[in-house]
Design a protein around this nucleic acid. Structure first.
Length: 420
DNA sequence: CGTCCACGTCTAC
DNA sequence: TAGACCTGGACGG
């Protein structure tokens, strides 16, 4: 989930769910988490949230009480504390009753409610992190959504930075300049402007002004015009996006925010709106290649001059040694055995804490290129009916597969929503 | 069962 | 510029 829009939706979720709720006691961390303990405990405090780019900050505010004046009990906080979170690949917040704690709830805030409810930072992969008494990470630039003006100025005034020597698609992931842009957003943004992903960033950006002169232009609705070409293939022509690249880095993420909860609230695990919103990322018919950092770049048309020279011979990687395979990752599937009886301590299977070494990569280059004429597949499969994503599922280039941002599991939509 | 893939950083050679 | 860090879902055999 986590790109700028999801982090912001997470902050809205926290503010909505925790409005009026009183929290109490210490902040609790899971056994397996490597992030720092949060040294905060208070009889009664409130929680509010804000977001900036790809970070969310929770503010824990002690409530006034008689105790406060009487010099609260030792250890009790009387000053607010900020905890800054980064979501990694799988982080999110959930507010549930105590007995419905989600799996992987690594940091928890307990309310004073009767059936106690808990605000949890949930993160299955644990790539996320938090820092107490924190501030926004200094190395990250202004938020693309809510600090638009300074975001623009920061980019435009630093175009001489060597960072802009790289392909635009890779620079868009540089959080020092594009705090909030992630893998699906870079694809959607470049796609809207038809910018080849592997063109030098400076080339694409030079000439843009610090000021956004489009700001007041009415957002011309993107018209979609279906046209038939000689070969009978149906094409959809996207009519002019308003604004330059930097403006789209601001408006496109905001479109996701406006989609609402669907994008975030895992509760209603309904990502259909989000899926329908995607025009390029993981969309059937689009191309994809690994960028120089091993991340999949989705695009249409020309990849651009700086495209990876197919260099990475993924296959050359060969098997990784076999020797070490003894991961003692005791997989005790949570046998939902409802041993309601006493001892609840050990019952809670902990995530493996073994330090077992060597496991394979996450983003490792894979098969590449497989040029294929556009021949078959006139991408107009609305006939469907039972249509199980039966479509070819070649990786490395040219098209989709399952699972993606926001959980784009299952079949991919093949036709644009507004395409007729 | 095993392999591949995933919305992102981090640090170490 | 590679790995490291993780879990789990989709798929293939």
């Amino acid at each position: 989930m986590p790109e700028g829009p999801e982090l912001h939706l997470a902050s809205l979720y926290v503010n909505k769910m925790c409005n009026g709720v009183v929290f109490t006691g210490p902040v609790r961390k899971s056994e397996v988490s490597k992030s720092p303990d949060v040294p905060f405990t208070c009889e009664a405090y409130r929680i509010t949230a804000t977001s900036r780019g790809k970070e969310v900050k929770l503010t824990l505010t002690p409530m006034k009480s008689d105790d406060t004046k009487r010099k609260a009990k030792k250890g009790q906080a009387d000053q607010p504390m900020d905890v800054v979170f980064r979501f990694g690949m799988s982080g999110y917040f959930r507010f549930t009753t105590e007995d419905e704690l989600p799996k992987h709830a690594h940091l928890r805030f307990y309310s004073t409610e009767k059936p106690c409810r808990v605000l949890s930072f949930v993160d299955a992969r644990r790539f996320g992190s938090w820092q107490h008494s924190g501030t926004w990470q200094p190395s990250r630039g202004p938020c693309i959504m809510f600090e638009y003006k300074s975001f623009r100025e920061n980019v435009v005034s630093h175009l001489s930075d060597r960072a802009f020597d790289r392909p635009i698609c890779e620079v868009l992931l540089n959080q020092k300049y594009f705090n909030g842009i992630g893998n699906y957003l870079r694809a959607e943004i470049l796609f809207r402007l038809n910018i080849p992903p592997f063109v030098a960033a400076r080339t694409v950006l030079e000439g843009l002004e610090s000021e956004d002169f489009c700001e007041n232009e009415k957002p011309v609705k993107n018209e979609i015009a279906d046209t038939k070409t000689s070969d009978g293939t149906e094409h959809k022509r996207v009519k002019e996006e308003t604004g330059d690249l930097l403006r789209l880095c601001h408006t496109v993420p905001l479109e996701v925010v406006s989609l609402g909860g669907k994008g975030y609230d895992p509760e209603k695990a309904d990502y259909s709106d989000f899926q329908a919103w995607l025009q390029c990322y993981y969309v059937d018919g689009m191309k994809s290649v690994r960028d120089h950092n091993g991340r999949t770049m989705w695009f249409k048309g020309d990849p651009g001059p700086m495209a990876p020279k197919d260099s990475k011979s993924p296959k050359a990687k060969k098997r990784t040694k076999k020797e070490d395979d003894h991961d003692y990752t005791d997989k005790k599937k949570v046998a939902k055995s409802r041993s309601a009886s006493s001892a609840k301590k050990k019952a809670v299977k902990q995530e493996a804490v073994t330090k077992t070494p060597k496991r394979e990569k996450d983003a490792r280059p894979k098969e590449a290129k497989s040029k294929r004429g556009k021949t078959d597949k006139p991408l107009k499969v609305n006939t469907a009916r039972h249509e199980k994503r039966s479509t070819a599922r070649r990786r490395g280039s040219s098209n989709a597969g399952p699972t993606a941002a926001g959980g784009l599991r299952r079949s991919r939509r093949v036709t644009r929503p507004n395409g007729k």
